[in-house]
Design a protein around this nucleic acid. Structure first.
Length: 276
DNA sequence: CCGCGGGCCTGAGAGC
DNA sequence: TGCTCTCAGGCCCGCG
């Protein structure tokens, strides 16, 4: 996409999580993508018009990238639903000869256009907390965000305002690596004045560690996720708790059994013995 | 202001 | 085979 122009945009469905702008196609056609970026779970494409195309994959969204001349990409070939091209809601045909297809069965994904100057103030962006792999994200910052909160650690880490980009898997995995219970009060990461406790230090290190490792492994392929080359990610083989209910806790010396509970309507996997 | 439950969607898999 | 039920990597909204 980078450096290429939108030649043609196919819109098969305009009702994603929210309706696309009515002039979506008009605002994209002929514009050049001057840069690609990301903030939290939002994908960002800077356009020559001064607007930014904001995209979110929701639960089931994916982009596949192909040459216009290709029948299939490796990613498509290996995709479990490659026979059905239903749910290809948006297709970008770029001047570089690349075709980029947004597929999203559940339509929890999102695309919208925002003026670059207003991006930081956009309601969806203003909410997004610190990047977990950035230097600014440390125990002091996490403790400050969690002090005075009357919620669980699981809910706090899942909250994109506290830290950006963690989903259900990585929250569960980070808490296990830090040996902290998902049920523990988030406020216990801070002392009265908001200073970080040693728990906060451990948790920040665990978050960074699990994300670095997951990225190096190409991500977690449960059903939809693929690497950019179409191959499966490998990190699902390194899960210590996620999806492992009833299995022995992998913590050395721990005799616990992984349990599944529901918090805020979502599954939490944890070891009740070593996570306190 | 804050936290929680329900709702938004489709598809896969289990159990009957 | 086919039905019903549960669950799924996310997030917004309304309620209390």
């Amino acid at each position: 996409m980078e450096g290429a122009r939108f030649l043609h945009i196919e819109l098969n469905r305009a009702d994603l999580r929210r309706p696309l702008p009515t002039d979506f196609v008009k605002r994209l056609r002929g514009k050049t993508v001057t840069g690609l970026g990301r903030r939290g779970k939002y994908l960002l494409a800077d356009l020559s018009s001064g607007e930014v195309l904001m995209m979110h994959l929701g639960m089931s969204g994916s982009f596949r990238v192909a040459r216009e001349t290709d029948e299939k990409t490796p990613g498509e070939f290996h995709h479990p639903r490659s026979r059905e091209r239903t749910h290809d809601h948006v297709v970008f045909h770029m001047s570089s000869g690349t075709r980029i297809t947004f597929n999203d069965p559940r339509r929890f994904g999102l695309m919208l256009l925002v003026r670059r100057a207003e991006l930081a103030d956009h309601p969806l962006m203003r909410q997004v907390g610190p990047e977990p792999l950035g230097n600014a994200f440390d125990a002091a910052m996490l403790a400050r965000a969690c002090a005075n909160r009357k919620t669980s650690l699981k809910a706090a880490l899942s909250d994109q305002k506290v830290v950006a980009g963690l989903g259900n898997i990585y929250v569960c995995e980070a808490l296990h690596r830090a040996r902290l219970s998902p049920k523990r009060s988030a406020a216990t990461l801070a002392r009265g004045a908001g200073q970080p406790t040693p728990r906060a230090e451990k948790l920040v290190a665990a978050i960074k560690d699990v994300l670095h490792n997951a990225i190096a492994a190409g991500g977690s392929s449960l059903r939809d996720h693929r690497r950019t080359d179409g191959e499966l990610g490998d990190f699902q083989h390194n899960f210590r708790v996620y999806g492992r209910e009833g299995k022995p806790c992998p913590t050395p010396g721990c005799r616990g059994t992984i349990r599944r509970i529901v918090q805020g309507g979502r599954s939490t996997f944890f070891c009740p013995v070593c996570q306190r």
